[in-house]
Design a protein around this nucleic acid. Structure first.
Lengths: 337, 337
DNA sequence: GGCTATTAGTAAAGGCCTTTACTAATAGCC
DNA sequence: GGCTATTAGTAAAGGCCTTTACTAATAGCC
């Protein structure tokens, strides 16, 4: 049994399809009794106007797209995204929008973007020059970049270089010289230069700190790490097995740091006495675990909220191109001395 | 500048719109050189076929809808939903689908459902008889109910009554007689009878335990509570102010229980010595906090995964109507003696 | 009672794409 | 060299809805 269409309702109610459309969209154009008759028939048959057709003629569907170059499963496991979505969600709530979360499809983010029935995109972790993003620019579809580089497009970022500098400087200041860095693993390697965006800025910050304190920078102590508790635990354990003996660790995210804590506990490494650890993000659990995690706090929810607001403004024709940079601060808890 | 359509590309490439469509969807129908010429023009103009039109003729858009009767902001703040979405997300990843999360729009969930450009729904916390759900049944749009009652539709639930019984029985067994229950606050009050689904089943379980242990059931000790840390903290503090002196507490969710822990700490109440607390869900933080939370573990991720799989099966024509009930178990940690 | 204004509705075009049925041209074959 | 088979494309219909321009009937008015 195929779904009832506007024509079925029209026939059943003895009116034209136009009248059915009016009953839903401009009931004032019809007499009250006709509107009621039409709506009663519609209710009877469970009819609702097809959102796709409606969107096609209206030019919008009331959905924001959130594009992330990681699997949905990982996104929803990551408190960073949960908090970011809270921020975006608060804007959606206000404007009666839905939030469509999208991952690569058949390993192609471009495909996912092309197929998305949305009014605009919030894109996390890509630059405006990425080949997935270019078509949007050419096509004039509104989007906002979060945690990525942008010269032309709108973007929201944190002060990554400064905060990375602060974290590294703190450890070097304490006299640490064997500092291991568990960095992002750049899920998005298809560009010639994988060194962009958040990862690049943080690395510059670290390197600047090392230079300032006269400490040699060793690429071999900079280890790309999968961004999860499991990933952090494994990478740290592996590093130990390979002979690394760090006295301090900087991680690209709190999740990775939590993994380090777990692996350290298993190996009997005392934190912060044997090893100091600084995470990044300040996700809610960071202060709940024991020892409480020292970390760099970035205003994630704010990031999402601003990104949402910029996008909503763009959807209603605002063509400004803001590039917002939010402050981040070092929070010292119990994984540092 | 309006967006390029298939006709613009056709004109520019000197072919018919049909040819452009073929270039994207069935390139074998065209010569290689033509396909390349068309795709080059498309790339140049940032053209991608409009997902709405495509969806309209294809009959599907590759998006699952997740419907929750709470604000998006709250959903993304709630680890229960994060884990549920992880489960659903793993199915989406596998089948190249997006996940559209939807909240009431203008206070109407029905409106949100009507406007959603999706292929099917996962509906959390409503019954199949709710007026929001009825049109989907009549219209034949596939959906799966999670944490709600269903006789006809597909559904995924936990063994709520049994696990609530077990939690209450454990406390009563220990001799507690002043047991406060911080229950769901039923955001969805529009039905005559607000007593349905998860909340109702758990309450039956509690009541059965009270009856079995010969303890009087007092409605006044059953307090609807907003499902967040803040909500739990406030409700508990308010109860104390009103003169309640519970020796044990059962909560509808771990978030509420975490709120109780926080408020208890502020008031100098020792847990578990002065007060035993049992949460519900076993969200990841439950075992990280101190004291670690005793709770009822339900397989949330599994719930999401199964709901996703049932829906995907329904989308490909599987008309079975499974009603899955997952086991839940009492986990005793440090908030019970 | 004849004119204008309003009310209640319809017909047709258009939003953007895909698919089916067709045509024209070339290739293959003995 | 004339037939069939294949290749490369096009025209037109159709997916479901909304909006614009129109018509017909009624109401209002002096």
């Amino acid at each position: 049994m195929p779904r009832a269409t506007i024509n079925d309702i029209a026939r059943q109610a003895g009116v034209s399809p136009t009248a059915v459309s009016f009953a839903f969209n401009s009931p004032a154009r019809l007499s009250t009794t006709t509107v009621e008759r039409i709506l009663a028939v519609a209710r009877d048959m469970g009819y609702m106007p097809n959102p796709l057709s409606r969107g096609l003629v209206a030019g919008h569907v009331g959905v924001l797209g959130l594009i992330v170059p990681q699997a949905l499963r990982e996104i929803f496991a990551n408190p960073f995204f949960a908090t970011l979505q809270q921020g975006i969600g608060s804007v959606c709530d206000e404007h009666n929008l839905g939030l469509l979360t999208l991952s690569p499809q058949n390993n192609s983010l471009e495909l996912a973007i092309a197929r998305a029935p949305v009014d605009g995109f919030i894109i996390v972790g890509l630059n405006e020059q990425h080949h997935e993003v270019l078509p949007l620019r050419k096509r004039g579809i509104p989007f906002v970049i979060v945690d990525g580089d942008a010269e032309i497009a709108q973007s929201v970022n944190s002060a990554d270089e400064e905060s990375a500098y602060a974290a590294a400087a703190h450890l070097l200041e304490q006299g640490h010289r064997e500092v291991l860095i568990l960095a992002f693993d750049m899920p998005h390697r298809h560009l010639d230069n994988i060194f962009y965006g958040v990862g690049a800025r943080r690395t510059w910050g670290y390197q600047r700190a090392f230079a300032n304190y006269g400490v040699e920078w060793r690429d071999s102590w900079f280890l790309p790490t999968q961004g999860s508790v499991e990933g952090g635990a494994q990478r740290f354990a592996q590093a130990l097995d390979e002979g690394y003996r760090p006295t301090a660790i900087l991680t690209a995210s709190d999740l990775i740091a939590l993994g380090v804590l777990r692996a350290a506990r298993q190996r009997g490494i005392q934190i912060p006495n044997d090893l100091e650890v600084i995470g990044y993000d300040d996700i809610p659990v960071a202060e709940l675990v024991s020892p409480a995690l020292s970390t760099v706090r970035q205003p994630i929810m704010e990031k999402g909220r601003i990104a949402g607001e910029l996008l909503v403004a763009a959807l209603s024709g605002d063509t400004g191109a803001e590039r917002v940079v939010l402050a981040a601060e070092l929070i010292l808890r119990e994984t540092t001395r």
